[in-house]
Nucleic acid binder design. Structure first.
Lengths: 261, 261
DNA sequence: CGTTTTTGTTTCATAATGTGAAACGCCGTT
DNA sequence: AACGGCGTTTCACATTATGAAACAAAAACG
């Protein structure tokens, strides 16, 4: 087993990630300091990335930022994503029908990644989560996905990622979460009230592919009291239905997979 | 002058681009053949890219595709793009008001890159151009941007990129295009009728930043007869006004830059 | 306004790193 | 059962990336 990765490439990715994380353009030395690389090395890699369009150099100032080529790759992938295309219209319907923010996420490496978003008429100044990551233990979408996994795998994720406390209501005990996941599985949707962000309530449901694996999740979220007024039960059932329809279009057979329940 | 780029990194980017271009996942050998690399080298790079999440390996089959990390970087950049945020609401208004497809593009390396898109109520099955590139000489957005550049620079772009003929109406003569660019500059918006795609008419106008450089363009496009019914003159004036408002929000001063007209 | 410090760029000797031929093992096909 | 195609691993070799140091240019400072 060759546990060896290509060093130059890893360093290049480090640089790209530092640039992505940074709000403003960075200089060669600054980048080098942040990832512990010699500025000479950083410079050569940046030069190559610029040449290929993945990084752009600010004219006049010696600062580097992500380039347009990154977006070309990213959007290409995004547009080709089967689940995104299929879910698109459902997200729109849900957003309109409840007039709240709707998200589509994909599980990745024990976390969820926000992939798409629709919002109701209420213009919320909330910063978009699209493209960002979130933990599973304290989000409705994360719990919805966890509820479909075998206990062993869930515990492995919780152990490796930890269960950081974001609010007073964040569940930080694995056993308590496991218990709740059982109920979520029975219900078919997950509820999360202020476990991740104070004042926000969120409902999520998993999406399955042909093989029965949860490959994503959708959610509706909004201010806790407004959500309760609208009826969490009702919203939950509604997104559950939407999730089932999306899953069906992804090739999931509820008939086939209900045999082992 | 060190005209030397980092070889390993360039090869890695080649691999990513091959994967992005391909509709379906590719195998190690296939990738190697396409870019002329030894499969052993391809394999090692893919391994690293997988480890970092930029490429995903299909379970069961030995095929590789772009990974979710690519989207994380891309969308992050996309969301932070100042011009996109500012243009967003204008794109929506234009799409609704004319009930046609509206695009935002950025110029890059003598071409335009489609960055955002809004569509009217008419559901068009047209494949999304977002994330894709197009030449400048035969698109309204491209001509709008070219019309703001000095002749020398325009000719350099035309020479290096060529003026490939897409339809009967594509302008393939540099001098004739130069002439048209003069009129476009006076008018403030560009018209392109079937020069890129048969049956489609498109109107575009440039967007400027604080320094007076054209950093993007917006367009409205649709079936040629429908567009003519709605009045190309009227649509042109309207997007020109929208473009001016976006430019103003980007820090462009029409007062300051009208001195040298 | 000159001095000092910081930062981007280039050079270059060194060896660490990436390379590709070859071999291995795993499938599916013939 | 033999073959061909593929992903994977090994390994000796030298090409390639590396980082110290020098240089240039600009920014910060007094």
């Amino acid at each position: 087993m060759t546990e060896r990765y290509v060093q130059t490439l890893e360093r290049s990715l480090d640089i790209l990630e530092v640039l992505a994380r940074s709000e403003e353009p960075l200089g060669v030395t600054e980048i080098g300091n942040r990832i512990g690389l010699h500025k000479s090395t950083v410079y050569r890699i940046l030069r190559t990335l610029c040449y290929r369009g993945y990084v752009e150099k600010e004219k006049e100032r010696d600062r580097y930022r992500l380039g347009i080529k990154i977006v070309e790759l990213g959007i290409r992938f995004f547009n080709d994503l089967e689940i995104r295309k299929i879910a698109a219209s459902f997200l729109g319907l849900l957003a309109k029908s409840f007039d709240e923010v709707v998200h589509l996420v994909l599980p990745n490496d024990g976390e969820v990644v926000y992939i798409d978003r629709r919002e109701g008429s209420q213009v919320i100044s909330m910063h978009s989560k699209v493209g960002r990551r979130a933990p599973m233990h304290c989000t409705a979408v994360g719990k919805a996905i966890l509820s479909t996994l075998p206990e062993e795998e869930v515990r492995h994720i919780l152990k490796s990622k930890g269960m950081p406390k974001f609010t007073e209501k964040t569940i930080t005990n694995p056993d308590r979460l496991m218990e709740q996941l059982g109920e979520i599985k029975k219900l078919g949707f997950a509820l999360e009230a202020e476990e991740n962000e104070v004042g926000i309530l969120c409902l999520g449901t998993p999406i399955f592919d042909y093989s029965g694996r949860a490959i994503g999740a959708i959610s509706v979220s909004g201010p806790i009291n407004r959500m309760k007024e609208k009826g969490t039960e009702k919203i939950g059932e509604e997104i559950k239905r939407a999730g089932q329809e999306i899953s069906a279009k992804m090739g999931y057979s509820y008939y086939k997979h209900s045999l082992d329940v």
